[in-house]
Amino acid sequence: MSEDLRARLRAGDRDAFAELYEQHARAVHLHAHRLTGDWSAAEEVMADTFLDAWRHRARLEPEGGAVLPWLLGMATNKARNARRGTGRRLAFLSRRPAPEPVPDFAEETAGRLDDARTLDAVREVYGRLRRAEREVLALCVWSGLDYAEAAQALGVPVGTVRSRLSRARARLRRLVEERLVEERLADESEGRAEGRGEPSPGRGEVRRGDAFAALTLTDFQEGTSR
């Protein structure tokens, strides 16, 4: 089916392109959001990705299995450009008067995980990862590509994907654990300032660091896709 879809796309079959969009638009959109951190930018990245997919359909290899790695590879490049553009806009806006504050509704999505603080910490530190680390996590962990597919999307050897993913996972875990410790110390300090003690975890209670270690792939997908 995948090779047939490839052949139809390369031949300019519009129905095949519509099928491609229906199958993978959501995955491309979510991938773009994980890399840009902005839903509006993700919409633009997704639109540009499918536009380029149609324009450059002849470049799609006639054989090669799933088409999603090809799409996510283009989306990754588009997201890089979007982040650079965002950086330039932020630099410009930093020289302008600050706008009126608007309500932040991000906390409403945190309740989808049992440990909302862990999810918040993941969100906060994710942007501190190196670009290559964010990209390989987005492809392998959240988009579910295997090493070979991620290598295809990034245009790097499979071994590079393996090493990047290992480093990215280790660094993300370390940053999250450090963030959770900072929050715990801040809570204890606030509690002492208010004259109340910080209760120690009870028997059988899951500590925040353990909760992070227990997060599943489904948890990450649900938590970052809302």
Rank of each mutant, 00 (worst) to 15 (best):
M1R: 13
D4Q: 02
R6F: 01
A11V: 09
G12H: 05
G12D: 04
R14M: 01
R14Y: 06
Y21F: 14
Q23P: 08
Q23E: 01
Q23K: 12
H24G: 07
A27K: 14
H33P: 01
H33G: 03
R34A: 03
L35Y: 08
L35C: 00
G37Y: 07
W39Y: 10
A41M: 12
A41E: 05
D48H: 15
D48Y: 15
D48N: 15
F50Y: 11
D52G: 15
W54Y: 12
W54R: 00
W54T: 11
W54L: 11
R55K: 13
H56M: 09
R59K: 13
R59I: 09
E61R: 10
E61M: 05
E63L: 03
G64E: 01
G64R: 07
G65D: 04
L68S: 06
P69A: 04
W70C: 01
L71C: 05
L71R: 00
M74A: 12
N77P: 12
A79D: 02
R80S: 07
R84P: 10
G87Y: 08
R89V: 13
R89L: 14
L90N: 10
A91K: 03
F92T: 12
P97M: 00
P99K: 05
P101W: 04
V102G: 05
V102H: 06
P103S: 06
D104Q: 04
E107S: 09
A116V: 14
A116M: 01
T118R: 00
V122R: 05
V122H: 06
V122Q: 07
E124Q: 07
V125N: 04
Y126M: 00
G127N: 01
R128D: 07
L129H: 00
A132G: 02
V136P: 05
L139K: 08
L139C: 01
C140W: 13
C140G: 01
W142K: 02
L145R: 03
L145F: 12
Y147A: 10
Y147D: 12
E149P: 13
E149I: 11
A151F: 11
A151M: 04
L154T: 00
G155C: 05
V156E: 06
V156P: 10
V158M: 08
V158L: 05
T160F: 06
S163L: 10
S163V: 14
A170N: 08
R171P: 02
V176Q: 07
V181Q: 09
D187G: 10
D187L: 12
R192L: 13
R192E: 14
A193K: 09
A193R: 11
A193L: 09
R196K: 03
R196F: 09
E198G: 10
S200K: 14
G202R: 13
R203E: 03
R203V: 08
E205D: 06
R207E: 15
G209K: 10
D210A: 10
D210T: 06
T216N: 04
T216Q: 03
L217R: 11
F220K: 06
G223M: 01
T224L: 09
S225G: 08
R226I: 13
R226P: 15
R226G: 15
